[in-house]
Amino acid sequence: MTAPLDDPRRHDSGGGPPVPGPAEEEYRPSPLQREREAYLRRQTVRSVLIAAASTAVVGVALAAAVLGSPGWERVRATFFDPDVALDALPEVAAGLWLNLRLLVFCALGALALGLLVAVLRTLRGPVFFPLRALATGYTYGFRGAPLIIVLYLMTFGVPGLRLEGTPSVLVLGGIALVVTYGAYIAEVFRAGIESVHPGQIAAARSLGLTYRQAMRHVVLPQAVRRVSPPLLNDMVALQKDVGLISLAGPIDAIRAAQIATAETYNFTPYIVAGVLFILMAVPLVAVTDRITVRAARRQSADGAR
């Protein structure tokens, strides 16, 4: 550091003379470094300009194609009528409240069911074979079954049995969502459980913790942290699929839009419902992104086990 001219790293640079400053607090970038930074800045500006230009070209072309199309006027009137949108908004928004409540209950239910099934699938030993087989069969079956069919079976089939105390169609629809999503979430949890290093269980068991205690205090906390980004992504998918409850009859946002559309022969209420669904998703998506970034940062800082 005291003899910068002898530093071998300086020789291949070919830039200006090294800065001779002896003390570190007086450090100023060398001309070479300043030149490098200026070049990188110019490159960044160029990339941004190119990206902006290409976006503008594509945008204008798309707008021209849609707005200049022969049928645009009719499409605009049937899908984007502001008066119809304003009229439909209260009904659709009231319906969305139902979607939101359904989302909260289904999310909690599906997470609980998923976690239970994932833990059941990790149990070893012949005693647990029936439970394990049941859990495995469940994840196989319900990941393959189309949600709409499960929904129809639950909301039209189960009431058809005319049993005493059959819950409302809304509850039955919620159960359909929970069992379908629970199967996906179980697999996410299982992946998380299996990603925890076996040394962690060995360490926990060697301290005298039982299998259940090791799972509860050591494995699951780490597994849940690791899979929280994909889990939240499943929650975003669920928040959209709660709209399918409209197929069974309850008046949610989409059902309300359908009713409004039937009254006016105008499809604008569906657009209103669609926009509201997107707005409902925005906070969840934002949280998911933030947690994903944080998880990635933690993972990269996690050098040692």
């Binding site: 290093h197 040394g199 962690q200 060995a202 360490a203 926990a204 060697s206 050591v218 906390p221 780490q222 942290r225 996690d302 040692a304 086990r305």
Partner: peptide, 12 residues
């Protein structure tokens, strides 16, 4: 008591 090569402390 057992101590492991890779420490196996609980990271959380």
């Amino acid at each position: 008591g057992m101590v492991f090569q890779s420490y196996n402390l609980f990271p959380h």
